[in-house]
Design a protein around this nucleic acid. Structure first.
Lengths: 339, 339
DNA sequence: GTGAAAGCGCTAACAA
DNA sequence: TTGTTAGCGCTTTCAC
């Protein structure tokens, strides 16, 4: 029966006690005689009374809502991170409020304001870019903020990051160890600090460490789509010859798959004629044919870590200002051994 | 500067007006002299005042929060649906509160209570199963509920559904039109009404309409993982011969890809030796090799539709009790033409 | 047009 | 141990 939800006063009346006693029973605070507690609990069960969290938080002025800003929830990494965040928050009875920013800085700013209005107790932001305006707004928020995917520790915000540069370096090292000397790069624009700069940087590091100077003509920069991967490979390896790269590092798995898909259309064999690697280990990487050699990131764990850091801050504990997530190399079938 | 957020009373004092006037300016309600409005607005801008939504809703007792229960946000369909929901809700200034149920009915029940406590103004639930307990709790909620993926219209809940049975029937029809007479099924357990029963039902419908009686030995039921797809194909088509199916319908793309991946390992050619189709059109379906012939569902649109129905109900408008989303057949390269 | 005052449902001193 | 009371920050009659 869909009963009218009553309030604490009506309940108190029904139970023949004061509202404070109800409140004490509800929150297990203060002293309540055992019998009274039992009686109140029975009335609560009978009436199906559910207290208003909103009124409670108005009073205590600290809510249990955490705002989470996500650029694009319908992507593998984002959705895993979100799952990690909300799972961890739920453990501490915190609610996840979703802010889908669709990669628009304006929408992000807007959500920061909305979250402030809702008096969230904290915010987790997955940003591809963090401008001065963002940082300022995050400061003005007046509640703890944790950043995922960008390093904002210099501005005082706890950040959890992938070790992008070392990851890219490591997979490039692997390609080099397989005997490839001419290794191309399918990357993304530089304004994306992590994927754009850092992963590209790791590729450069690896090449230089092997005494190879990266060549501009072996680099293709674009967006994040499958088609960008296809366009990239067409640019770097328009045909297979002695003068084109024998291997290509794509900075994301999606780009790598776009590239492999294009090569298949061109009837170029992977890895026999061209080797391809990615970064990220999205779920299809391991079932694509050939199975993609890539870097595995723990996105779910990343989300969990961010939530942990936020909770710690909320509890007044101190946390690291930077947490760098581990990664590992998943060697599969998309790289040929040349030596 | 991270100013202390002041309240409406302090603001009223600063502006030299009453709190009611502030409220009127804030909500564009009632009469306020033009100059006074301008003045108040300036003060608001100067102080960076942001009103507390929580206090507002305590008073008006209608919040702007919508609870969304998702079984597993880190899956392609769920995350697309969630994106659609939150995008549409945001248009109407409604917040999305995420409830990650991890497929556990208990967690779902729990979220219903949490949402009630938070006094959400509505709930959208993506359920794989809807028990009596669910329906009862949804009734007790006292706010509009929209169901996605299951038909709860009989219980009075607006539902938005995929046309699962017709979708499965249509793709099976296509396989039959290509000349296949022996068509297997990789399915999932029956407790999943939509994917388990309906999709399987569509497969049966198509076969019977073609005068073919479905054979139990051509059916493999299991879970939703890639490995279940692999196990399924091993069971139905352990080897290629005249006595095994020439084509297999997998009830999800993920299962289809698991099956194709396994066939590749077995060096069985798709579609030359065995044809495979899926349902869902997840993002990799179109880049897998061979490109997967499947049914395309508009998951983002499904989420949007659910949100629209909820908003309409909230606004006191009437909506359909059932909304069946359209789908279309995406013919690609994973079915061989036999005739 | 504007302000005073009475709550929305709860918590937390303070008294008893 | 329990009840009384005064708010939390806002909206909304109802006077003026």
């Amino acid at each position: 029966m869909p009963r009218q939800n009553l309030n604490i006063r009506q309940l108190a009346e029904k139970a023949g006690v004061s509202t404070s006693t109800i409140s004490r029973v509800l929150n297990n605070s203060g002293y309540v005689r055992q019998e009274v507690r039992a009686h109140v609990e029975r009335i609560i069960a009978e009436t199906g009374y559910i207290p208003s969290g909103i009124a409670k938080h108005l009073k205590s002025s600290r809510s249990n809502m955490v705002g989470v800003i996500i650029p694009r929830i319908n992507s593998f990494a984002s959705s895993e991170i979100t799952a990690g965040i909300s799972t961890e928050l739920a453990e501490s009875d915190l609610m996840t409020i979703l802010g889908n920013s669709a990669n628009s800085p304006d929408a992000e700013m807007n959500y920061i304001e909305i979250f402030k209005r809702q008096r969230v107790c904290g915010v987790i932001i997955l940003a591809t870019v963090l401008t001065e305006r963002h940082l300022e707004a995050m400061n003005d928020l007046g509640v703890p903020v944790v950043v995922v995917g960008q390093d904002a520790s210099a501005s005082g915000f706890p950040s959890v990051l992938q070790d992008e540069r070392r990851a890219a370096r490591q997979i490039t090292d692997y390609v080099l160890r397989c005997g490839h000397r001419r290794v191309g790069l399918i990357g993304v624009a530089d304004w994306d600090v992590q994927v754009g700069c850092e992963r590209k940087g790791g590729w450069v590091d690896a090449l230089r460490a092997a005494g190879i100077e990266p060549r501009p003509e072996d680099i293709a920069l674009g967006g994040f789509d499958l088609t960008d991967g296809a366009a990239g490979i067409d640019r770097i390896v328009p045909f297979v010859s002695d003068t084109t790269p024998t291997a290509v590092v794509a900075v994301t798995d999606r780009l790598a798959i776009g590239a492999m898909s294009r090569l298949l259309e061109r009837r170029t064999r992977v890895p026999d004629e061209v080797s391809i690697v990615g970064v990220g280990d999205i779920d299809v990487a391991s079932v694509y044919s050939p199975k993609l050699t890539t870097i595995h990131f723990d996105y779910f764990g990343t989300g969990k870590a961010a939530a942990e850091m936020l909770i710690a801050t909320l509890d007044g504990e101190t946390t690291d200002l930077r947490r760098v997530m581990p990664f590992d190399l998943r060697i599969r079938d998309s790289v040929s051994i040349l030596d």
